[in-house]
Nucleic acid binder design. Sequence first.
DNA 1: TAATTAACCAAGCGCTTGCTTGCTTAATTA
DNA 2: TAATTAAGCAAGCAAGCGCTTGGTTAATTA
Lengths: 205, 205
Amino acid sequence: MPRGRKPQSPDASRRNDLLRAAARLFVEKGFNATTTRDIAEAVGMRSGSPFYHFRSKQELLKAAIIGGLEAAYERLLAATAEVTDSTDAEPRLRAMIRAHLGNLLEGECPTPMLLGETRALDASDKAEIAAAFDRYQLPWQSVLNDLAASGKLPSAAPPVRLLLFGMLNWAPQWYRAEGPLSLDELTEACLALLLGRERGDEIRK
Amino acid sequence: MPRGRKPQSPDASRRNDLLRAAARLFVEKGFNATTTRDIAEAVGMRSGSPFYHFRSKQELLKAAIIGGLEAAYERLLAATAEVTDSTDAEPRLRAMIRAHLGNLLEGECPTPMLLGETRALDASDKAEIAAAFDRYQLPWQSVLNDLAASGKLPSAAPPVRLLLFGMLNWAPQWYRAEGPLSLDELTEACLALLLGRERGDEIRK
DNA sequence: TAATTAACCAAGCGCTTGCTTGCTTAATTA
DNA sequence: TAATTAAGCAAGCAAGCGCTTGGTTAATTA
């Protein structure tokens, strides 16, 4: 257990350790039910040491949410970049849904689940997080617009995007990885519901 | 402020006062962020008095959730009972969605928002609540089955119901009563998304 | 009228919480 | 080699927490 400085300031790895552990615990037990001692213990520190890296527990939450949203955003862009057919918006939406569900349910990045915990933060922090989340929503509105323009979606009004996010973000409440439904199948179920297409057998589980 | 017994045991009104106040505060600030002193003060009691009516804070949460689910269930049934056309499942679904959104967003009964707080309860309490919630879901699965049978819905597999609940239960995260969207319009937007129908102008907000 | 009881209040106990303070150690720099 | 600094530890403080205990009061019952 080296105690001095190892990296002069390369990646601030212990700080990131704290962020990852805090995000995991916050998702698992909620913000208020997670103690700073829990977080410290999760990375092998003593109870007061996290406050060397973060001024307060709230700052830890804020940093975890914003960092997580940025990571999720980049995964989203990476997933759409792999879609070759840019003339059709449907495969792009499929890739985005799949990436989002992956972030939520299998990745290390279930940050949208923490959006409800912003209650614990003050107004300015909330605003900062809302801005980051707005940015995350832009590509979604864009793909919905394309789908509506090509007639595959009856409407791309804002409630559609918000209802879609509801479908997806509520999934952690009920989805179990051990269950009969794979994430690919769930993705297809969402698409079928949105685009009103028949997709019978594969989601009859 | 009478201190003795007033009603011999008619409705246990102070107990209900506590339940209502607790439910409201739990929804507002979350279970852990709500102190038993908050609840006591909300009904004009001193800090220790709620424990005359409830053995623990957890018991308060459990009773609030189960009571709320039962109230929501009866409102759901009452709303469907008013639908005269029983040959078509679509108006029934519309009434259910409207009633559910009313419970969530305008009523005194936003209990589904508390389902996430069951983390704070032990396994047996969780199971009891899950049973009450299962019962709430039965009419939904039934109406979805009818819609699928009449060809209005491509599939009524379980994920469809869960995705629908996600759409609805996520709404408290973003819906504002002061906003441009009425609950009736939101209901139509949900229906349009589910049934894939064109419903252009009215939800373009 | 006397005994009982439902429904509280006043006070506080033991514990946990977020956070602070002062010190220590190992790596870096001069 | 000497000074500096990043990164932590050990200890603990003040506030707040859920909950208990013993008494009090007004309505009910016998």
